[in-house]
Amino acid sequence: MSALTSTQTRPIWKRLNWNVTTKQALFAYAILFPTIAILALFRFFPMLQAFYVSLTEYDLLRPPKFIGLENFIDLVQDPLFLSSARISIMYVVLSCVPVWVLSLGLAVLFNRHIVAKNFFRSAAFMPVVMPAVVNAVVWTFMYHQDGVVNTVIGWFGVDPIPWLRSSAWALWAVIIIGIWRATPYYMVIFLAGLQAIPEEYYEAAQIDGASAWSQFRHITLPLLKPTTLLVMVMSVIVAMKVFAVPMIMTGGGPADSTRVLPLMIYQTAFEFFKMGRAAAMSIFLFAAVMIFTVFQIRLFARGEE
């Protein structure tokens, strides 16, 4: 907003050169302003405070005490924090990679002539619509030892799996829900990307005798690149912040096997009363997401005007 600030006494509108570009820029600033104002007050400001709090020892009830980087130094040596970070990374990788593959696969599936396409597409899309709390409660129910998931895998002769009662399986249980809920959303994005690829490319390839796989490999994938990047950025941001499902379903257990970083941050702040430490953890989380996103946006930027 530097264009508007001045110590001179002449009214702004007399000093400004009202050429078209300035006028447009002013309009652009004006319509952006309410968003910036609200976000500044209710997002940036709390974020800045979180940054400050990360440098303090703060139990929420007594005033924060400045301790410099102690929280950070402590965290990188804390096995519990490191194990939580590792679980978060595992969650992100093990849920996002299948999401990318499955959503692209489903998009390819829906990008052809199908009888009752609307029904199938709606059914596939349903997971996105379920509210988060309901989602966690219903799946808790389905994951029970004698529950519906084990019954279904039993049809294929698989022995019951102690989904939420085993430190080997609990993270997978959480990951499966993540995949279930995210895949249809990105499928729709991929679907649009596919529909934008001109049919002629494929026709030309068929004339050259290219196999279906080779068409997919040499036409579809390269042309989907911008869409793929978008899906990657969004899915990773969402996965890094996963909270409600492990919170309600497992509370982080058994034996810490599902204590993802956001859950650990929440518990450190509100169950252990260590806001400073929690804030420091979230700076790590923030940095991880930010680095990844900036990296992706730079890749994006190449395709833009």
Binding site: I36, L39, R43, V289
Partner: peptide
């Protein structure tokens, strides 16, 4: 970029300042 960055911190962290 600043606007985007607001998506990256979970609410659990900024909740108390907010």
């Amino acid at each position: 970029l600043l606007i985007l960055s607001t998506m990256m911190l979970p609410l659990e962290v900024t909740m108390v300042p907010l």
